[in-house]
């Protein structure tokens, strides 16, 4: 379980996060939603200790972030971090050299899943395929938690559908996923939990299925209520 407890973050004088708390369970997909600049990426960075936080605490399986943690959790940024002249196979080798939790078998499976050719250079790939390679590099790791930053942004509908298939497949079985997205309509049926952020705080944290069952509202309905009043 990832527990985010009352974290605050300032960029200079600007307060981005003013005490954000939520939890993300293993085996569930948690979706962070909020308008641009609300601090979604900052939260993901804070979980990975890529950016210092001013106050608060983040616990992963009950422990604060330490060196061993990086074998249990992976962060997939919104843009690929590999050099463009690399082939996909080079990028995979690079990951293999640097991470002990890299799973070559799963990586090969993912190549097939996304219909990618490992001899292609990253610079030659379309935006959709680049995003798939980016996801592949993160998902092939044997970790408990996967953080995804905007995996759908700027990608065509069919590639989005292929990426969404990941969420219903065995590839994320028993893992915890935290995802940020604006394309909520695409994955409304797939997510377990929604965390709505606005003005530096969590406005609402709810289960998508319970909102439908108890209130007869879709996730988008709840968002409209929260953001458009």
């Amino acid at each position: 379980m990832i527990e985010v407890k009352e974290i605050t973050k300032n960029y200079g004088r600007k307060k981005i996060l003013k005490g954000v708390s939520f939890t993300a369970n293993k085996g569930e997909i948690t979706c962070l939603i909020g308008i641009n600049g609300v601090g979604k990426t900052t939260i993901l960075n804070a979980i990975m200790a890529l950016t210092p936080i001013n106050k608060g605490q983040i616990l992963i399986n009950g422990e604060t972030i330490n060196k061993n943690m990086f074998e249990k959790i992976t962060f997939i940024p919104d843009a690929i971090t590999m050099l463009p002249q690399m082939k996909i196979s080079d990028a995979m080798e690079f990951m293999n050299d640097f991470y002990t939790c890299w799973n070559q078998k799963r990586a090969t499976e993912l190549l097939g899943f996304f219909k990618l050719n490992e001899q292609d250079r990253i610079s030659s790939l379309s935006k959709g395929n680049t995003a798939k390679v980016n996801l592949l590099l993160g998902l092939a790791m044997d970790v408990d938690f996967v953080l995804m930053d905007e995996p759908f942004s700027g990608i065509d509908m069919f590639s989005r559908e292929e990426i969404a298939k990941v969420f219903t497949s065995h590839l994320i079985e028993n893992r915890g996923v935290i995802i940020t997205t604006h394309e909520i309509g695409d994955i409304e049926h797939l997510i377990d939990k929604v965390v709505l952020l606005d003005e530096g705080i969590v406005i609402k944290e709810f289960s998508a299925e319970e909102a439908r069952e108890n209130e007869g509202k879709s996730v988008v309905d709840v968002m409209r209520e929260v953001y458009q009043k």
Binding site: G27, I29, F167, T168, H189, L190
Partner: peptide, 17 residues
């Protein structure tokens, strides 16, 4: 459950339920 989730593109936890 997993197969169903995959086929009709729903959350595996939902299929379980």
């Amino acid at each position: 459950r997993r197969e169903l989730a995959n086929r009709i593109k729903i959350n595996p936890n939902t299929a379980q339920r």
